[in-house]
Amino acid sequence: MFKDLFTIFIASAIINNFVFTRYLGLCIFFGVSKKMETALGMSMTFTAVMVISAALSWLVYNLVMLPLHIEFLKIVLFIGIVAGFVQFADTLLKKLNPTLYYKLGIYLVLITTNCIILAVPLLNTDNNYNFLQSITLGLGSGAGFSLALIIMASIRERLELANIPKPFQGMPIAFIVTGLIALAFLGFSGMITI
């Protein structure tokens, strides 16, 4: 039981890292990884949203959708759940930490349309995970996304001082770095898949 949860966590956080092995969630990834401060803020927000939306989706799916036989609506309903919760987090953050709120800018609202946040509830239902497994997958995915953001922010802050040719400064070199990290993550291929 405990080993199973640990496997799910490691698999989703590192071995099948959503950003570097499935190339999901790149919009926010490139948007907020320019500075460590925003990357850390987004990491915490994203992980919290991830875990709670995984839990809410599991509850709605198992307590409402399965008894009513409306599983085919899961994509629409999951997007609705995530959107509602993000709106809630958005309002909360605006009150609690306005500075971070303005730094994260448009990307906070964009969590709603983030591929990872939809992929996790869908994976949970596909794998018939129970409540704890679903939350663990959400937590692992959030941790994996945070790891990707923090690595990327540290690399991009170092690249600020690099003598990069003009056409490649900013976004292009960020894409190249991501490609090279993905090449390194190929080493984990064939280990555990979820």
């Binding site: 690399i155 170092r158 690249l159 690099a162 003598n163 990069i164 040719p165 490649f168 070199i173 190249i176 770095v177 090279l180």
Partner: peptide, 9 residues
Amino acid sequence: LFGGLGYNI
């Protein structure tokens, strides 16, 4: 592309 020797990650 990273600026040559000393800058590569």
